[in-house]
Simulated scan of single mutants.
Amino acid sequence: MATQASGAGERLPHTVAVILRIIAAVAVGYGLGALVTILLARHLPMPARDATQAGVMAGFLVHGGVVIWAFAARTTLRAWGWLAVLAIPLILVWRLP
């Protein structure tokens, strides 16, 4: 039996596509969640304790959203592309003083 593509227009074997989506969900999701936590804890106009707590809660939401998006995207390349589009502005803002 011929190998079927895992998504519309995707040419990766199904196992590789799933592994790449798991990496995106776990590693990139954690990284984006951590960036959101850091940025909100640093820039929210409230006491440091409250800003940190709000940042942590938002980080959990971002990580959960990334996990959902990594498996809901039509192709693995599209999932990674959108995660890169989200990560670049967060990294640039993080590098600001």
Score class of each variant (00 low, 15 high):
G31Y: 13
G31K: 09
G31I: 09
L32T: 13
G33P: 05
A34N: 13
L35T: 10
L35A: 13
V36C: 09
V36L: 09
T37L: 11
L39I: 14
L39H: 06
L40I: 11
R42D: 11
H43S: 12
L44C: 07
P45W: 10
R49Q: 15
D50R: 06
D50L: 14
T52M: 14
T52H: 13
Q53Y: 12
Q53C: 11
A54C: 02
A54G: 01
A54E: 04
V56E: 12
V56C: 06
M57S: 09
M57Y: 12
G59F: 05
G59M: 09
F60N: 07
F60M: 14
F60S: 09
F60Q: 10
L61T: 07
L61F: 04
L61M: 12
V62Y: 00
V62C: 01
H63E: 14
H63A: 15
H63V: 12
G64W: 00
G65V: 00
V67G: 02
I68K: 11
I68W: 15
I68D: 10
I68Q: 06
W69T: 02
F71P: 00
A72P: 13
A72C: 10
A72W: 10
A73H: 03
A73T: 06
A73Q: 10
T75G: 05
T76N: 10
T76F: 02
T76V: 11
R78F: 02
R78V: 05
R78M: 08
W80G: 03
W80M: 07
G81S: 11
G81L: 08
W82V: 07
L83S: 00
A84Y: 07
A84E: 06
V85D: 00
V85K: 00
L86G: 15
A87S: 14
A87K: 04
P89T: 05
P89E: 06
L90S: 06
I91E: 06
I91V: 15
L92D: 00
